[in-house]
């Protein structure tokens, strides 16, 4: 049961606190770091700028790679915090809520897919994430984990201390001991994140427009309007 602390009500809806500060901060850190990583990552894979001046006077590509690595460390820290918060946070943030581990959850996912494909009548808004969103967020965290592992394997390959040697040897073992295979899969993740970003943005706007229950600043303020019946249903 969500803590219905706020008094604010609107057309049979109640304002509840859903997202804790940790969840909100990690959400925006994920957004910023992944955006930086995607842009710099694309440029690393497809450098399109060749300046003809002396190599000693310019460090363009080096700077881009530096930004990529710096953002990767931010992503790593954010990922670890969010991973931990999935065990201690409120029910909307927990892994036990996000993972599609029961048949009931899979049926809810299917129902939501149908609702999206055949939009009619009232659109249900969940207090936390919707069942379909839960699945995709788990996929996103898996993709983040995969990109961190493959990324730091490549990073470690260029850093010749015993620590990084060990890290990259472990990572390489996961990819058939071939660094080029690591590059290949790491590159593919870029497109996963771009596709996810498009759909995520669309579905957030869709939910706002269709349901009129939630607001764009939910991930900033942490509060969300929820239909009272939904709250009591979810509490069961």
């Amino acid at each position: 049961m969500a803590v219905a602390t706020a008094e604010k009500r609107r057309e049979g809806m109640i304002l509840v606190k859903v997202w804790e500060p940790t969840v909100r901060v990690t959400h925006w850190l994920l957004f910023l770091s992944i955006t930086t990583l995607c842009i710099t990552g694309y440029l690393i894979g497809n450098p399109t700028f060749s300046s003809p001046q002396e190599a000693a006077k310019t460090f363009t590509f080096g700077t881009i790679r530096f930004l990529h690595f710096a953002a990767a460390y931010v992503l790593l820290a954010t990922f670890l915090i969010r991973l931990y918060w999935g065990f201690v946070g409120n029910r909307y943030a927990r892994w036990s809520t996000l993972l599609p581990i029961t048949g009931k959850r899979w049926r809810a996912i299917w129902k939501e897919v149908l609702d999206l494909a055949l939009p009619k009548g009232k659109f249900r808004v969940y207090t936390g994430h919707s069942p379909l969103a839960n699945v995709f967020y788990v996929l996103v965290y898996l993709a983040v984990l995969f990109s961190l592992v493959s990324g730091f394997t490549m990073y470690g390959a260029a850093h010749y201390t015993p620590f990084w040697r060990t890290i990259s040897a472990w990572g390489l073992a996961l990819f058939g001991n071939n660094l080029n295979t690591v590059h290949f899969w790491h590159h593919w993740l870029l497109w996963f994140f771009i596709l996810f970003f498009l759909m995520h943005l669309y579905l957030v706007i869709y939910t706002i427009v269709v349901s009129r229950t939630t607001e764009i600043d939910t991930m900033i303020s942490g509060y969300k309007f929820v239909v009272e019946e939904t709250l009591s249903e979810e509490a069961e």
């Binding site: 450098p47 060749s50 003809p52 190599a55 000693a56 310019t58 460090f59 363009t60």
Partner: peptide
């Protein structure tokens, strides 16, 4: 150095 400079 050409790699770091973005010269390809």
């Amino acid at each position: 150095p050409h790699f770091d400079a973005g010269q390809f």
